[in-house]
Design a protein around this nucleic acid. Structure first.
Length: 224
DNA sequence: GCGTGATCATGA
DNA sequence: TCATGATCACGC
């Protein structure tokens, strides 16, 4: 028996707040799931457990978790100091068929319009079952944050369109970075190469850098 | 292979 | 020590 999907933004927020303070062990029991020893082979386990509790529409469709509410759910691993332990994956990056693609029409822009962040203790010295959920926050990019995201996105997409994807490293971008996102280094997909050629390359994903998510968490908890 | 959920683990 | 590049699982 899985929870129903929330019918409003307010209901979603209320339900997310009820998770705060609970441990992953407690939440797993309520969902009749077993807690893995570690996340080495279950990297998405925490995210999927929280999705279940909040009634997110499961599946691997490229749409927001709560499509009817236009809200994306992101769990974020937090250190003992309350800072993000990892960058945040947003979505895969399109590498071909990019003619005329603008920020406002991009998949990443839509996904980041409204995000429900759920902090979860993530230090490896805390047994998985004992890690607790933190207070959630519903975030919409400020004008400045959206400008930062759009600027990085445009720079990265320009390089991709010009066939320079192999020159892009995770160091590009102030707040948004492009990194491999695949089963392993052998996974390949099509991309633009030099001089209008077509090449095979590793699939890439857009990730939010730690300092960006840290800043938005700080801004929220500083005023709430 | 793609897109979802992410964290792992090694080189700098 | 820590971010980059690599990797793991699942549904289809």
């Amino acid at each position: 028996m899985s929870p129903l999907a929330p019918t409003s933004e307010q209901e979603l927020l209320i339900r997310a707040r009820l998770l705060a303070g609970q441990s992953l062990g407690e939440l797993a029991a309520q969902a009749s799931r077993t807690v893995p020893q570690d996340l080495k082979r279950d990297k998405g386990w925490v995210g999927q457990l929280i999705e279940w509790h909040l009634g997110a529409s499961a599946g691997s469709k490229p749409v927001p978790d709560f499509e009817h509410l236009g809200i994306e759910l992101k769990t974020i691993p937090i250190s003992h100091q309350g800072t993000p332990l990892e960058s945040t994956f947003v979505c895969v990056a399109p590498l071909i068929g990019l003619h005329g693609l603008q920020w406002q029409q991009s998949h990443i822009c839509h996904k980041l319009k409204k995000v429900l962040w759920v902090p979860v203790e993530g230090e490896r010295d805390i047994p998985l079952a004992e890690r607790c959920i933190g207070n959630p926050l519903l975030w919409t990019p400020s004008e400045i944050e959206e400008q930062q995201l759009r600027h990085d996105w445009e720079e990265l997409m320009d390089l991709i369109v010009l066939g320079h994807i192999e020159q892009i490293t995770a160091r590009y971008g102030e707040v948004l970075q492009l990194r491999p996102k695949g089963m392993n280094g052998q996974a390949l997909t099509d991309a633009y190469g030099p001089n209008g050629s077509r090449i095979r390359t590793r699939p890439r994903g857009f990730y939010l850098k730690k300092h960006f998510t840290q800043a938005l968490l700080n801004a929220y908890f500083q005023t709430n």
